[in-house]
Amino acid sequence: MSTKWQQFKNSYFFHSFIHDKVAIVSFVVLVMLVVCSFSAPIIAPHDPYDTTTIDVLDAETPPIWMEGGNPNFLLGTDAQGRDILSTMLYGMRVSLLIGLGAVFLQAFLGVVIGLIAGYFGGKLDSLLMRLADVQLSFSTLMVAIFISAIFQAFFGINKYEELAVPFLIIVIGLAEWPQYARTVRASVLAEKKKEYVEAAKVIGFGSGRIMWKHILPNTLSPILVISTIQVANAIMSEAALSFLGLGMPVTKPSLGSLINSGFEYIFSGSWWITIFPGILLVILILVINLLGDWLRDVLNPKLYKG
């Protein structure tokens, strides 16, 4: 165990990490946010999912430092009288789960399909890419409608509240894999004619090994750029779906749907419903992106081996 740790400590990965202040700060902030959101039931002053504690008469209480603020609600309350701070913590957990889960699913599907399409080419390539076109035309909205129909047939309307998170991960994950597939495929097309691939073939490496070990690392750069941005997109897509009644249930708001629902109040004075979750989301996405940038620089074979 200790040798592993030693190994890790001496690695280029770790070395570049402790020498990059931005990376360290981002990492610390991200860890803090993740810890906060997953320990929300312990640290949050209220339980926003427990409807018995919510009173509509507390609705739109401003933050504590403003006139009319209530010491019970540090950052004020939303239109239902939920404590914003607690709702943000709970909501961030949902958003992180959905954002990361969906992006992981998209990336996995996209990379596999993109590698296969690019590497083997021909009819298989055409078929997969046209499938991607079909998929793209349907956009997230239609995919959500389609899958919700299947969900409803299996579980009925009343189970929705429990199944919303996996449902949304599947929907957003399935909807946007073509973005990855096309990018990876394009890189593969460019890479597979290069000498090192030919060399690997001559040596007799299997297709799988060539794809994963040799070609994939060279496509990493665009994948990481897309991924970090897709996390933000996934979180916002979830919020947009709530309009169709296909997002998180209104009683269990995510960060995105908080921003969404508060946005109509922004000009009527109750800006805190949107602004606080908005700031939190920006910070969250910012650190994920900064870490993504750093990771890309570190992992990219061309950059340091070049």
Binding site: I229, A232, N233, M236, A239, A240, G256, I259, N260, F263, I266, F267, T274, G278, L281, V282, L284, I285, L286, N289, L290, D293
Partner: peptide
Amino acid sequence: IMGASVVGVSIPVFLTAIMLIY
């Protein structure tokens, strides 16, 4: 620029739109 670009991505487009109108 890189920081601003993140802010750009994480602000929902309808919010940007309504802010512009406002």
